[in-house]
Design a protein around this nucleic acid. Sequence first.
DNA 1: GCCGTTTTCGGCCCGACTGTTTTCAGTCG
Length: 568
Amino acid sequence: MKNKEISALFSRIADALEIKGELPFKVLAYRRAAAVLEDLGEDVESLAEEKKLLSVPGIGSGTAAKIEEYLKTGKMKKYQEALSGIPEGLLDLLEVQNLGAKTVQLAHKELHVRNLEDLKKAIRDGSLAALRGMGEKRVDNIRKGIESYEKAQERIPIYVALTIAEDVLGYLKGAAGIGRVSVAGSLRRMKETVGDIDILASGKNGARIIRHLASYPKVRRVLAEGTTKGSFVVASDFGDRQVDLRIVDDGEYGAALQYFTGSKAHSIKLRGMAKERGLKISEYGVFRGDKKIAGRDEEDVYAALGLPLFPPEMREDRGEIELALEGRLPEIVDYDDIRGDLHVHSDWSDGNIPLSRLAEMGRGRGYRYLAVCDHSRAASYAGGLTPARVRLQMREIAALNAKLKGFRLLAGPEVDILADGSLDLPDELLAELDVVVGSIHSGFKKNVTARMLKAMENSHLDIIGHPSGRLISGREGYNVDLEAVLKGAQRLGKALELNSFYDRLDLNEFYLKKAKDLGVTISLGTDTHSSGGLEMMRFGVGIARRAWLGKKDILNCLSLERLKRKLK
DNA sequence: GCCGTTTTCGGCCCGACTGTTTTCAGTCG
């Protein structure tokens, strides 16, 4: 897939044009094209072959031609042209907070700044501060921007972001005069990683609420502090992270929540629609002329445009608005539709929770079942179980189940898919188990596609675990053709896992969407190894919702009885 | 550069905050 590659080119073109002072809308168009490509589920190359590039919103005749040129020749003339006269290191400066194209352009023109080192020098010797429109404070802010840029603030995993956000939310609720309060932004939309943490609150005295948060002991630095808006650096177990807080009147809360939840593309489309209908949407409400017609609740804002209240996870401008207008918005899975967890480890292999405790934890969450999926012997590093140990564990599970009412532990190892695609436990044993998850744990680059396909030929296998093998924190994943695996799963009637551990979220939302389109069933498992692990289910469901999966697409929305029928 | 049940030309989301300015420009989301 060359999606990312081409997206990066467009992004660089946008940066270069912006520094050169090109028409802002042109820059925006390249940015939009880059963002669309980055987020595109389809392979841009196959789209180009099928002559469907123009059907992608944000791709027009200009960018389509450039994509085709690049696919054909490996080059893009516009790219060379845009970057001519721009030193390599200059574009990177746009990543620095508080430093935008205008200032970069100025520093380049007046001081011949070519890269970060030059910029730092210009700050040190005072030449930057001496430029027109600059001054001590602006330079100081740029210096701080460089500081955090050099700390290479990567994107924040959703689990980390939500932990910090809920901590701040708890503190904010103690503020005098505070009304409603919620997370917003990409965190509310449950993206797998977020850039920053957005929180919205309503209240009469915004300045006081913002001061309240500024005095939170975990706030290390106040970046901005106004009457409606504040930015803070908050300390956490996961490092310092930026939290943005906005305060609005309670009567504007719905409009503000809609606006600050985004996504940007979704909101821009709404604003365009509003304009067509003689309305105006802002974070303060929906207006006809000077008259406010909605704003207190999100639902009213959407209703003013004849739209339903979209689940935040669907607000990505991926066709949801058009479908809703036709009354065909799909119903997606809810957080409490999940009847059980289909991937947890116990202290029999590399987990640290006894079976009896797992059963209590599962029941405590209102589940009807929990699949105990300890590793098989090939995963020796994880204390993988031999066939004899598997049988022993099955007996203990049966004994526990005999004592449980309305809840079952399911016996189901996470069996290794070996180098030749066979499974790491004998067929006659697999036949006796409730559920069989097959996963790759070694040989990430070796014939992974063929091995997975062969494993799926085994009639005892039910689910392929973490099919891509990627870790969000930085492991690329298997060398695998997921399209082929999806088609194999469709043909052989197997389920694929959505591993819901926050650093995996594997399959990702794009392949999940494809799975849904192919009618492939998805199984949600948290890959729990320790206490708190079951909580990861919310991230899996969040991603499932982003992929528009419904109850019927998900194995563990089934009752125990129907699940058992489906598995055997 | 993209886009169109008002348009193939002429629009393109819009407001807060900050710092530099005597009324606004840059940056951000």
